[in-house]
Structures are given as C-alpha cells and as structure tokens.
Simulated assay, not measured.
Amino acid sequence: MSYKSLVKNINVDTPHLGGNVKVGDPYTYCPSVWDYVISRFGIDSVLDLGSGCGNASHYFCRKGLKVVAVEGLSDNIRLSLYPAIMHDLVNGPVHTRVDLVHCQEVVEHIEEKYIDSLLASLLTGKFVLMTHAVPGQNAYGACWLHAS
C-alpha cells in the first residue's frame, strides 16, 4: 500500500492542521483494534479528536457508541461521514466527558505552545487511543495511554 496515488486534503490557509487522505487513511483504519479496546475497557462514549473525514467516528457510531467528532479542516466537516464539530486546538481545548479519546495522526501537528489545549482535550477521556508520527518517521506507530 502506498500514499502516492491517494488524494490529500490540505488547506493552505491553515497549514498547522496538517491534512489527511480525502477518503480516509488506510493505515489508520483499525476496526480490530477499536473492537478490542471497546470490549476490553467497556467503552460507551468516544471523542474522535481530529476526526478527518469521519471513518472512525462513523464506525464507532455503528457500534452503538455515543460519539463526539471534532475536526479542524472545514472540507472534512463538510464531507464527513459522521457529523463533526469544527474546532482548532489553537483556540483552546475540547470540553466533554467520554470513556475513550481516539486521536490518530493529530499530535504531530500541534505546536508546543498549544500543548495545554491538546492535553486538556486528551484528559476528557478515561482512556486514550492515539497514533502519532515521530520526527523522521515514515510509518506511524500506536500507543495506548490511561488517563485518570
């Protein structure tokens, strides 16, 4: 699988938001991981932070979970498979209470001066399921964090 032929959604007016693959990133669509986390930790509600085009939010909704999708790119909001709230973490954290915060390929776009908004948003959940890029990394890794 390659990213070469996939169409990307990037807004030149908001480069700090990064971008995404318009139809969804095939490397971050992980139903088997999501199902395990939902079952293992008894997840009933999810904040999909940086929801992109809504594939994960839509999946969570189909599983019967309460979902809050938050996205910064207006094109993603307009075309999302699942209704999303437009919010940029440079304007402050997301305020909600959920079992799980799902955050894929977002944190590498957050400038250090906005880290408090990111952390406060992540701490709205009991658990965090996050993937991120590291400097110089071509592939993306995953980690689970428990927030109390």
Rank of each mutant, 00 (worst) to 15 (best):
S74A: 12
Y29P: 00
R62F: 01
V37M: 09
V37P: 07
K8Y: 06
K22G: 00
L123M: 13
I38M: 06
V37W: 07
S51Q: 02
G125Q: 08
N91M: 13
G64A: 11
C30I: 09
I110A: 09
V107H: 03
G50Y: 03
Y3C: 00
V68C: 08
L79S: 12
T131I: 00
V12A: 15
D116C: 10
C53Q: 08
G52Y: 02
N9Q: 14
N9Y: 03
S121V: 12
R40Q: 13
E105R: 14
V12K: 15
C103Y: 05
V101D: 05
V12G: 05
F41D: 10
N20P: 00
P31N: 03
G72D: 06
P31D: 05
L145Q: 10
K22F: 00
V12P: 15
V90G: 00
H16I: 07
S32D: 12
S45H: 07
L17A: 11
L79C: 09
H146W: 06
S117Y: 04
P83W: 05
C103Q: 03
H102G: 04
D88Y: 07
C30S: 09
G92E: 05
C143I: 08
W34R: 02
D75L: 08
G50N: 06
V21M: 11
V107K: 10
A84S: 15
N55D: 09
L89Q: 07
T96C: 15
I10L: 09
L123S: 13
N138K: 08
D35K: 13
K4E: 03
V90C: 09
G64Q: 09
G24A: 02
E111G: 13
Y36R: 14
N91C: 13
D13I: 00
A84V: 10
G54R: 05
D88W: 11
Y36S: 14
H102R: 02
D44T: 15
Y140R: 13
N91E: 13
F60C: 11
V23Y: 00
S80H: 08
G72N: 12
I38T: 04
G72T: 11
D35R: 11
C103L: 08
